[in-house]
Write a protein that binds this DNA or RNA. Structure first.
Lengths: 172, 172
DNA sequence: TCACTTCTGTAACGATCGTTCGAGAAGTAC
DNA sequence: GTACTTCTCGAACGATCGTTACAGAAGTGA
């Protein structure tokens, strides 16, 4: 059994709250004071539970991708046809980014636009994640081209990039 | 003649430099220290010439719209056909947002995403400016529909919103 | 009960934020 | 020359940033 004074808050609920705050304000604009007041816990507790701000953001990001943002991977994995996958992707993105009970847009897209120079690594990390998503879409399209579902002259890279741009535009 | 010690720098050049810094880092992430080092001016001189940070940003924004961002209004004003206007808009936006000698994207779109709560009015102002641009596009499309250039059932609002989303996506 | 461990609230750290004050520099007007 | 106005440099303001030290609270194991 774990000894010592038990934590007075639910770590998972706090993480969920942190996701909401980061989602709404981005990384830089989310201060520790904002987090502590939103989550109702002291700064020391937050640091003891999650490390520093950067680690808390990365953990929030990881959970976000596996929950709120998972529809993108599901669309690509569950739809056998590439065209259906793209259509579902766009439809679900439009729905997900405008839900009234959640912050608007996509955490990956908006969290680190215009970040300060000292958090450039966070911005780079988010850029990599977005690029990975675009590449997954490109692979799906390229596979469909090889399978004959799409015209042979389809530029998979350009099409995937365009779809990502549309999604990023919807997010804003 | 204006008496007193003359200003040691070119106000217009400084404003141009401020546009570049705001364009690259956004509003919140642009600190006064960043501006003074980029422009080679002391903080007091900057305040004497432009007021405070907010006023400097608004003046930079005004000048940006009339120079770098003017292609949008030109496309709508100079192209008689709505379809040509939209095509030109998209092409010129793609070119303008990827010029290697300038920061990427659009200042209006990226400057105040994820801003801190105390600069929410700046974000609201930028939102209004973007909305005005979308409305101008919508008016152009609606006029084309009335003139018979586009199908009568065209949803001008939806189409204009979609084009704006694509442009905003290209900016990111 | 008593040691031990872990968490919590408070207060503070140095750094940076936007902004301003004061002394001196650099001009014009007389 | 002197008076006057304006700008420039450096230091400093209070506020906030992310982060941590410290003392006490609240548990477990004996």
């Amino acid at each position: 059994m774990r000894t010592g004074r038990p934590r007075s808050f639910d770590r998972d609920k706090a993480l969920e709250g942190a996701i909401a705050v980061f989602w709404e304000h981005g990384y830089d604009a989310t201060s520790i004071a904002l987090l502590t007041s939103a989550l109702g816990i002291g700064a020391a507790s937050l640091y003891a539970a999650f490390g520093d701000k950067r680690a808390l953001f990365l953990e929030s990001l990881d959970r976000y991708i596996r929950t709120y943002g998972a529809f993108t991977q599901r669309a690509l994995a569950e739809e056998p046809n590439a065209r259906d996958a793209v259509e579902r992707l766009l439809r679900e993105a439009a729905a997900a980014y405008t839900r009234p009970d959640r912050p608007r847009g996509c955490l990956l897209i908006t969290a680190a636009t215009n970040c300060s120079p000292q958090s450039a690594d966070i911005a780079a990390h988010l850029r990599d994640l977005r690029a990975a998503g675009t590449r997954a879409l490109e692979d799906k399209i390229a596979a469909a081209v090889r399978a004959g579902e799409l015209p042979a002259r389809t530029d998979a890279h350009a099409l995937a990039t365009f779809c990502s741009a549309v999604i990023q535009g919807m997010s804003a």
